[in-house]
Amino acid sequence: MKKSFIFIIFINFVLYLPGYFIHAQTSDERANNLFKEVRCLVCQGQTIHESNAELAEDLKIIIKEEITKGKSDEDIKQFLVDKYGDWILMTPPFDPYTYVLWLSPAIIILFGFGYIYYKSRKQLK
């Protein structure tokens, strides 16, 4: 019983592994994923993926061209940021301006867990 149990867990972890290998994306999929990352400049909080505005369509064409030129996703994003600023990307970058944004959730949760653990030890004594 115990052995078969461990075996099943082991098999599962081996089988999780394929998920690690990201399957090769077609350029259409790449373009679509990038569209979801790029904010539409003239719309209310939409990405260019969701928008049909003229400016959004223009950006889509630019991105597709950059992909055919063989640029990586990172290059394209950097190109857009240089041109329009951080604002254009849906995901904020990780830099001194956003340390608080990215790191504080971890600090908050650890603080709370620490407190709960501390209280449980203190009261049992």
């Binding site: 600023g85 951080d86 604002w87 995901t91 904020p92």
Partner: peptide, 11 residues
């Protein structure tokens, strides 16, 4: 901070 950024769904 005088900079604009977007906090989108992926955050």
């Amino acid at each position: 901070l005088n900079t604009s950024l977007t906090v989108g769904p992926s955050y």
